[in-house]
Amino acid sequence: MIQLPSESDRLQILQDKMQEYIDNGTQLGWLIDRKKRQIFIYRPNIAVEVLDNPKRLCGKTLLRRFILHLSHIC
């Protein structure tokens, strides 16, 4: 799941929603904060990982060949 907030979305509400998705079975979630150029990575049973201004995201073992280039998003 990829969540890309709009200007009116509140980050904390989206973070809570992402955690709810993970708690209900989603295996991977990316919350992209364009304003702060941060990516929050959600996975089951793992603390949320925060990346500062990454150039790309890859799906690792879950989405092995999937790469999201962030130059036009962030």
Rank of each mutant, 00 (worst) to 15 (best):
P44G: 04
T61Y: 09
R37G: 09
G29N: 10
M1H: 10
Q38P: 10
G29V: 02
E7A: 02
L62R: 02
C74R: 13
C58S: 08
C58G: 06
L28M: 01
Q15A: 05
A47D: 15
M18C: 15
N24S: 13
L70P: 07
D16G: 06
V48L: 13
F66M: 09
Y42R: 10
E49Y: 08
L57K: 01
S71E: 14
W30L: 10
W30G: 09
R43N: 08
V50N: 09
R56C: 14
R43K: 13
D23G: 05
I2M: 01
K36W: 12
K55M: 12
L31F: 14
P54N: 13
L28C: 03
D9W: 03
D9G: 03
L63F: 00
Q19L: 13
L63W: 00
N53D: 07
Q3F: 04
I39W: 09
T61M: 07
N24G: 08
L14Q: 02
H72T: 15
K36F: 15
S6K: 01
R43M: 07
M18E: 09
W30T: 05
F66K: 04
S6F: 01
L57I: 04
L70S: 05
I67Y: 08
D23Y: 08
H69S: 13
M1P: 05
I22F: 06
N24E: 11
K17F: 14
Q3Y: 06
R10H: 14
I2Y: 03
D52Y: 11
D52I: 10
L63Q: 00
L4Y: 08
I22T: 03
K55L: 11
C74E: 14
P5R: 00
R10P: 07
Q12W: 11
N53Q: 11
G59W: 01
Q12S: 14
I2V: 10
Q15W: 05
T61L: 06
P5I: 00
L4I: 02
K36M: 11
D52E: 09
C58D: 11
K35Y: 12
I39Q: 03
R65N: 11
C74Q: 15
I22V: 10
G25A: 03
E49C: 03
Q38M: 13
I13W: 11
I13N: 15
P5Y: 00
N53L: 07
R37T: 10
Q3W: 04
G59N: 05
I22C: 05
K60W: 02
V50Y: 07
I22A: 04
I39S: 07
Q38C: 11
D9A: 00
L4W: 05
L11C: 06
R64H: 13
C74D: 11
H69V: 14
Y21G: 02
C74S: 14
L62T: 06
L11M: 09
L14P: 01
E7L: 06
G29K: 03
N53Y: 05
L14V: 03
P54W: 08
M1L: 01
Q12H: 15
H69E: 15
A47T: 15
Q19K: 14
Y42D: 08
A47G: 14
Q27D: 07
S8G: 08
T61K: 00
S71V: 12
